[in-house]
Simulated assay, not measured.
Amino acid sequence: MTDDHVVSAYVTDAELDAEASVRPRRLAEFIAQHRVRDQLDLLLKGAMGRGTPPDHILLSGPPGLGKTTLANIVASELNAGIRTTSGPAIERSGDLAAILTSLAEGDVLFIDEIHRIAKPAEELLYSAMEDFRVDVVVGKGPGATAIPLDVEPFTLVGATTRSGLLTGPMRDRFGFVAHLDFYAPADLHLLLQRSARILGVPITEDGAAEIAGRSRGTPRIANRLLRRVRDFAEVRGSGVVDQATARAALKVYDVDERGLDRLDRAVLTALVDSFRGGPVGLSTLAVAVGEQSDTVEEVCEPFLVRAGLLARTPRGRVATEAGWRHLGRTPPETVVQQPDLFSRGVDS
């Protein structure tokens, strides 16, 4: 297959209705995460063979890797209903009790960001997960009464971006725990071809490869960039997403060849130009780029560290040799040498 080969744009009417769904609906359609996918397949088939709900499932990993998609796939594979909520939305145990008692037998309950669930609700969830029962307290003080309510057997799928914040008792109640890794460029290439077919976007092999290489190993980012490149191709190009079009479009959207955006480059540039490569404290670096410390730490740093462009040290943040060279600067002799974990596909 040559580089100028255009991926077929044939789609069904349902797929054309909205861009709604580039998300796979079955495990067989889920690209990458092969180990997790095989383990889930065994778990679900074993449970269906026994005629019982599968064990509760915990999915952890950075944002955008497919945790919500996998939760919906679990429900689809089981031919079950799914109820979706999030940890921050469950502020009281009564909120959770209402959700649990409304579930039908075999339903899937998906709780995103489960590490942020309120403590009283978490404790109520323990008995629901183990015994399919909740105790609702009516009244206050000495006259309070606990009313036990049965819950239909269900499967809880919890998702978290920060598994270290989960309490031990919560984590131990999940029968299957999986961590999702960043995608390799080859897997993102396949994912982009699939998304292009669903969206009706003509895309070449080298066009898909160009977008995949700038997607930070994250499917959500890859699909977002594909939609932006499609806009550019339709307005300023021939409508076909090839390598030249992808490069021109991503330049307009401030995404460079390594996947760094404007804020990433601002952080790296400030570190190199204003602080001579560091070390510098997080709060000082955040002030230098006009952002909150949390934004720099949670949005920019994980990717910069993973890409080997920035390192965290006991004295503060420092730019690595690769970080200096990415900006076209000559690094000093004492610069930190950090392995490029991102390009090697190694999870840090």
Rank of each mutant, 00 (worst) to 15 (best):
L58F: 09
R50N: 04
F30Y: 15
A71L: 02
R35A: 11
S60C: 11
G66R: 00
L40W: 00
A71P: 06
R37T: 06
I73W: 01
R26S: 15
L70S: 03
I73L: 00
T68N: 05
R37P: 09
H56S: 04
E77V: 11
I57K: 01
N79T: 07
L44Y: 08
K67I: 00
T68I: 07
L70N: 09
A80N: 08
D38C: 00
L78W: 06
P53H: 05
T68D: 02
L65W: 00
I73K: 00
L78T: 03
R83D: 01
N72Q: 12
I31M: 02
T68Y: 07
A32W: 09
G87Q: 06
R25W: 01
R35D: 15
L65F: 02
P54G: 03
G66L: 02
G49P: 03
A28R: 14
T69P: 09
L65R: 07
H56P: 14
G66C: 05
L40N: 13
D38L: 11
F30D: 14
T52N: 08
E77F: 14
L27P: 07
G46W: 00
I31Q: 05
L44P: 12
R26C: 11
G61M: 13
R25Q: 12
D55L: 11
T85F: 10
P54C: 07
I57D: 08
R26M: 12
T69M: 10
K45A: 12
R23G: 02
L65Q: 01
I82T: 00
I82D: 05
P63E: 04
E77R: 10
T69A: 05
A28K: 12
P62H: 04
Q33F: 02
T85D: 10
L40C: 04
S76A: 15
G46N: 13
A71G: 08
F30M: 14
S86R: 12
A28N: 12
M48F: 05
V22A: 01
A80F: 10
F30N: 04
L59E: 03
K45V: 01
S86E: 08
R35Y: 07
A32G: 15
R37D: 09
V36F: 00
G64C: 01
P62M: 14
N79I: 00
R26K: 14
S60M: 05
T68L: 06
F30E: 13
A75P: 07
V74I: 15
R23L: 15
S76G: 06
N72K: 09
R83W: 04
I31G: 04
L78A: 10
L70T: 07
H56N: 14
R26N: 11
V22T: 14
D55S: 13
L65Y: 01
L44A: 06
E29P: 13
I31W: 02
K45I: 03
A32S: 13
L65S: 02
V36T: 15
G81P: 04
L43N: 13
P24L: 06
P54Q: 06
P63C: 10
A28Y: 03
L58Y: 13
D38V: 02
R26D: 12
N79S: 15
Q39H: 14
V74F: 05
P63Y: 10
M48D: 08
T52W: 09
I82W: 03
G46Y: 04
G51M: 06
D41T: 14
L43Q: 11
G87H: 11
R50H: 10
G87W: 08
G87D: 11
R37I: 14
L42C: 12
S76D: 13
G49N: 09
R50M: 14
